[in-house]
Simulated assay, not measured.
Amino acid sequence: MTAPHAEPPAPTLKPWRGWLDAWAHWGTLVLVTGRLLAWACLPSSYRGRYWSALAEQLVAASLPTVGWYAVLSALFGQMLIRIVVVTALSYGLTPYAVEMVVRVLVLELIPLTAALFVLLRVTLGHGQALRQLRASGAFDAAMRAGEDPLRLYVLPRMLGAVFATLLLVLVSAALALVLAYLNLYGLTPWALAGYTRAVGQIFDPAVTLVFVLKTLGCALAVAVVPQAGAFERTPVGEVRVLVRTAAVLLVVELLSLIGNYY
Rank of each mutant, 00 (worst) to 15 (best):
L72K: 03
L72C: 09
L72Q: 04
A74N: 03
L75W: 02
L75F: 09
F76C: 10
F76S: 14
G77H: 02
G77N: 14
Q78V: 01
M79Y: 07
L80K: 11
L80N: 08
I81G: 01
R82I: 00
I83Y: 11
V85W: 03
V85C: 01
T87R: 08
T87Q: 13
A88L: 03
S90Q: 14
Y91E: 06
T94R: 11
P95K: 05
P95G: 06
P95D: 10
A97Y: 01
M100K: 01
V104I: 13
V104M: 14
L105I: 15
V106R: 04
V106I: 14
I110K: 06
I110G: 00
I110W: 07
L112K: 03
L112Y: 10
A115F: 07
L116T: 08
F117S: 12
F117Q: 09
L119I: 04
R121A: 14
R121Q: 13
V122C: 14
T123V: 11
L124F: 05
H126N: 13
H126Q: 13
G127N: 04
Q128Y: 11
L130T: 04
L130P: 05
Q132C: 07
Q132W: 11
Q132N: 15
L133E: 15
L133N: 07
R134T: 06
R134K: 13
A135G: 12
G137D: 11
G137Y: 13
G137C: 10
F139A: 11
